[in-house]
Design a protein around this nucleic acid. Structure first.
Length: 843
DNA sequence: TGCGCAGTTGACCTA
DNA sequence: ATAGGTCAACTGCGC
């Protein structure tokens, strides 16, 4: 339990009024088992303000940030499912607070914490600021910054661990300061913490102090200049922190590294910032630098003049108004933004699940062995619902099925189950903190203990449910130790360096030839399209039109629902990287980051490294086949039929390889397998086959203009023959590509570089891989350069990689087109969230 | 230092 | 149809 504080707080005499406490919700949208909230209440506050800062960083970039996106000042918007889940969590917490005290609620302030915290602490005369500790790289920087502000005002700051089973910093310390790279290391280190077991969960509070009186809460009188005097606005956060931190004594090697990166980013940051967010190309034109400022600090004086960024979504005609109404929202009541205000209205998945319960279960591939009908149906309706109430109910529903909980073995759960997923679907709750990971752990552990005593069968570590949660802790601790570079290939000390296609490009050093036609510098926010073919593979992978039905079905499920099964994530991750496309895992990680409901930077990056054999796992000979692997689970291809409906009529025999079906049969089954089907543009633009979209369609147009990817345009205005649909042929010969990748991986292992190697940063890696010759080919005046340009230079110190890259004209065009869209939607990535995916095996 | 073994979840072939 | 061995070979760890 949270402790240190108690001393301080109790220092005030009982008779004196308790402190004014600001409780800042972030990764902990729950009341149950919240060590930080418990700590806050233990201070016996005279006033408690539950706060959420509606942070543009969070909205326009995922919290993850560590990835490229953040480093580059990129902003991305999560899919509608993710925002719906988040808003549900916020509403639920708010309702729970109100239930305990009618005067209470979750107070949402629409501004970046770094920009607004100073003013809030002053205005509300806060004595203590309490929040759950967050070891994500961006969060650490942000929190250090806010802490400095608070302490400068004499406000006590208390950060309490609670997001993981074990405090990640403690784990790292007990692992000799090194990242936990194996399960054994994690278990060993965790075993030295306390009694070696996660803390028992704490009860939710039963009473809650009042907030301040409205007169004092009201921010209307907030003087703007106070805000503007804050050291920085959100987007300059890192730079500002950098400056400050350089003065401060600092600790770990890693942190020092970040600083250096920050320094180099400083220049571009402000600028990127501005246009950063909107992924929507349609909105981009409407953005100006003033608008960006409004993002952080809506001008009190002219709230409406602050031309709200109009992020329209195709077909929806809505605009993003979440920041245009001022700090306290449109009603001036600290309201929780609605999806409408966010401009992301659209049907959400869980509604679909709710209403379809009966129908879907009849065709479910799961047979629902262990569950009684009632339990199953209850559980099912809870899947994908945000909020603590729903999360705890889902956990409770699972726990009633003891056999399922106790005999759960992740690798044995079916990735092809869709209407009734084979895993628990608790991962989004782990991500938003709407269910405590320790609550989950102990609920399962108690069942296991009971069964062990009764000598009933239980599944072994680490494939069991607790093992899944330990993997989550392993990734968190690894990330905590490594810092920001954990989310990228270059500069990452634990990632083996593989010369993938589409490696990331880093800010800080202007690339040669980085001027656009209009003379403006190319925003340093793109990955390097060093291979147009790979770019096309990547786009086809992303939008589910590779011509491999198993892969396409999974990617479409991801885009539509924000979730795919762990093994499905394996399949697509392997396919994109070492098992087909040979594209950098960073690209895939970004897509996951954007589309997954449950994305967690640590788990996502960790799992992508795992699957790409960059770290954690190294047996690159084990390649998932897009044909034989799914057959093992779903011989009839029900999963494919659901998500790739154009193939629904195909015979089982051809469901995973429709191009092998005789033409006559293809016609008879209502779908022709032809070149690239409708063309990439069609797939990228379509909101989805089943009607609920992710709001991402906007990028499609921009992305695919004609030449963007070879061949994509060919079928462009393809008229759909009446009653006849199209599906692409495989975009490559799988076994050939498999061999190609194997050879590449073998070479990379032989060369044996890691991301932070000087030879990676300097560009010497090219010669080590025998890539010298290609250097001279890039020719386009602007772009070329010395081999250094294909290195990752500009590093002030080791590990802060910067690379500049050069592209010839054609490639650059591609980059521009493709990258816009890619980054528009990229999100996060995590391959699978280990925690989240606890599955249940319903077979 | 060297060796053998284990490692969350492959594919393929044979019996 | 399913179970088990083999493929070719990686890393980390303990002895």
């Amino acid at each position: 339990m949270p402790v240190e504080l108690k001393d301080r707080s109790s220092s005030s005499s009982p008779s004196s009024p308790g402190p004014r406490v600001l409780y800042w919700f972030r990764t902990d949208l729950r009341l149950d088992d919240s060590p930080a909230l418990t700590t806050a209440l233990s201070l016996n506050p005279s006033a408690l303000i539950p706060l959420w800062t509606w942070d543009p960083h969070y909205i326009y970039a995922s919290t993850s940030g560590q990835g490229l996106g953040q480093r580059l000042g990129q902003r991305q918007r999560g899919c509608v499912n993710r925002w719906a889940f988040l808003v549900a969590c916020m509403n639920d917490v708010s309702a729970s607070l109100t239930k305990l005290n009618p005067k209470q609620k979750l107070h949402v302030v629409r501004a970046a914490p770094a920009a607004i915290m100073d003013a809030l602490l002053r205005k509300w005369k806060i004595d203590v600021l309490v929040f759950e500790k967050d070891t994500d790289a961006y969060a650490r920087t942000r929190d250090a910054h806010v802490t400095r502000i608070a302490e400068g005002l004499g406000v006590k700051v208390v950060a309490v661990a609670g997001r993981t089973l074990f405090d990640s910093d403690d784990v790292v310390r007990h692992n000799g300061g090194k990242p936990t790279l194996t399960m054994a290391q994690l278990v060993k280190a965790a075993g030295k913490i306390g009694d070696g077991k996660p803390m028992r969960p704490l009860d939710a509070p039963t009473i809650l102090p009042d907030p301040l009186d409205w007169a004092e809460m009201n921010l209307d009188g907030l003087v703007l200049h106070e805000v503007n005097d804050a050291p920085s606005v959100s987007c300059d956060l890192k730079a500002a922190v950098d400056e400050n931190e350089n003065e401060t004594e600092h600790e770990t090697e890693h942190e020092t590294e970040h600083e250096n990166e920050n320094e180099s980013e400083k220049k571009t940051q402000t600028k990127t910032n501005v246009q950063a967010h909107p992924d929507m190309s349609t909105a981009r034109s409407g953005m100006d630098s003033n608008a960006a400022q409004h993002l952080d600090i809506p001008p009190k004086s002219s709230p409406l003049k602050a031309s709200p960024r109009s992020l329209s979504f195709p077909g929806m005609g809505l605009s993003d108004r979440q920041f245009s109404a001022g700090l306290m929202g449109p009603e001036g009541t600290f309201s929780i933004p609605t999806l409408e205000e966010m401009g992301v209205v659209g049907p959400q998945l869980h509604r679909d699940a709710d209403t379809d319960t009966d129908a879907t279960s009849t065709i479910s591939s799961g047979t629902g062995s262990g569950n009684g009908g009632n339990t199953t149906s209850t559980t099912q309706s809870l899947y994908r619902q945000g909020g603590e109430t729903a999360g705890l109910a889902l956990l409770a529903a699972h726990v009633t099925d003891e056999t399922y909980i106790a005999t759960f073995e992740k690798p044995a759960t079916a990735p092809t189950a869709f209407d009734r997923p084979a895993t628990t679907l608790l991962s989004p709750h782990m991500h938003f903190g709407s269910v405590s990971v320790r609550r989950f752990w102990w609920a399962v552990q108690d069942v296991l203990e009971r069964r062990r005593l009764a000598k009933q069968p239980v599944s072994p570590h680490p494939v069991n449910l607790p093992g899944q949660l330990l993997f989550r802790d392993m990734y968190f601790a690894a990330y905590a130790a490594v810092g920001a570079s954990f989310g990228q290939a270059v500069g990452n000390p634990v990632a083996r360096f593989v010369p993938w296609a589409l490696l990331s490009k880093y800010p800080g050093i202007p690339a040669t030839g980085s001027l656009r036609d209009d003379g403006e510098p190319e925003p340093e926010s793109r990955y390097m399209v060093d291979d147009p073919q790979a770019e096309e593979y990547f786009q086809r992978w992303k939008y589910g039109c590779t011509g491999f039905p198993w892969i396409d079905a999974l990617m479409r499920q991801l885009r539509q629902e924000g979730w795919i099964h762990h093994l499905g994530r394996h399949a697509v991750a392997c396919f994109l990287t070492r098992g087909g496309c040979y594209v950098s895992w960073e690209r895939g990680a970004e897509v996951f980051e954007e589309w997954l409901l449950d994305h967690e930077v640590a788990c996502n990056a960790g799992n992508w490294m795992w699957l790409s054999c960059s770290a954690f796992f190294s047996q690159f000979h084990r390649v998932y086949s897009p044909v034989s692997f799914p057959k093992k689970w779903d011989r009839r291809g029900e999963f494919v039929r659901r998500y790739v409906p154009e193939l629904a009529g195909f015979d089982d025999q051809f469901i995973y390889e429709p191009h092998k079906a005789p033409i006559a049969d293809q016609k008879r089954w209502g779908c022709l397998v032809k070149s690239d089907g409708y063309g990439l543009e069609h797939y990228a633009a379509s909101t989805s086959t089943t009607g609920y979209g992710t709001g991402n369609g906007a990028g499609a147009r921009a992305m695919m203009d004609s030449n963007s990817s070879g061949g994509a345009g060919s079928d462009k205005s393809h008229p759909t023959p009446p009653g006849q649909r199209l599906y692409p042929k495989p975009m490559f010969d799988f076994s050939q590509r498999r061999q190609f990748c194997l050879d590449k991986m073998k070479q990379a292992y032989e060369v044996g570089l890691y991301g932070d190697d000087e030879r990676v940063l300097s560009g010497e890696w090219r010669s080590l891989f025998g890539l010298e010759e290609q250097q001279g080919k890039e020719a386009d005046g602007k772009s070329v350069s010395s081999d250094a340009d294909l290195g990752f230079r500009g590093v002030k110190r080791q590990r802060s990689g910067v690379k500049s890259a050069l592209l010839d004209g054609k490639q650059r065009r591609l980059e521009t087109v493709g990258a816009d869209m890619v980054h528009e939607q990229h999100g996060s990535s995590q391959t699978d969230q280990s925690p989240g995916d606890q599955d249940q095996d319903r077979h």
